[in-house]
Design a binder for these strands. Structure first.
Lengths: 111, 111
DNA sequence: CAAATGATTCGATGATACTGGAAATATCGA
DNA sequence: TCGATATTTCCAGTATCATCGAATCATTTG
């Protein structure tokens, strides 16, 4: 994964709404969701959502396909794993990060 | 890791210079590097670098400590692993991402 | 074709981020 | 204390990002 691609992906996810969209699509699985459903679930104006979807799409984190009038968006797991791979490569690859990742199972309800 | 913290970390890394700084510090290891050395290595004006270091520090990705006149910055591996943990939790936790992460080893240290 | 529907693009506005020189702060050594 | 060194803070100017209503585009249906 190129440096530029990593930055694009990071800045795409570095936004409240886009992170929410992405998580929603990850949960929705490979079948994805139409834009309208996302807008309703996240309570976002259509034009705003479209802006964010385009951003995520440009960054390669989600894919777009048409089904009739609806545009279906789905998370691109390959890109996601590439990003995580890049981060772990630069963090855990050499050092003390890896062992810390696993125990992150605790479900805390911090505000 | 809270949602807000994740966004802070992502947006901190979503910048060419800050990502470079962070990678440099990761490579530098727990001992870190003084601001001046970072500025020279990355060829950044002191005031610009200071801005970025403050940003990374606010996001919890790096730590600051003083050694004489020098301020030493070091990567915070815990925060980093928290971020990676969050991302994998939302990606690989449920699906097909995990298997892709592991094989990302071209040059690996003795296991 | 025309109407209805799902979604994008346009455009103006406000907010936030980045940059880097100059001035200020902190520390060390003589 | 003075001067040199390491960094930060201040400030302004510039650039980029986010918002969302209105207009537009694409598709289906009658």
């Amino acid at each position: 994964m190129k440096n530029k691609a990593v930055i694009d992906a990071l800045s795409a996810l570095a936004n409240e709404h886009r992170l929410a969209v992405f998580r929603l699509l990850v949960q929705a699985g490979p079948e994805g969701q139409p834009a309208g459903a996302i807008a309703e679930a996240l309570d976002l104006p259509a034009s705003s959502l479209s802006f964010h979807l385009a951003h995520l799409n440009r960054a390669g984190l989600i894919t777009q396909s048409r089904d009739g009038r609806s545009l279906i968006y789905a998370a691109d797991f390959t890109a996601m794993s590439g990003l995580v791979g890049f981060l772990t490569e630069n963090c855990c690859g050499g050092a003390s990060c890896a062992p810390v990742v696993a125990p992150t199972q605790k479900k805390r309800k911090a505000s």
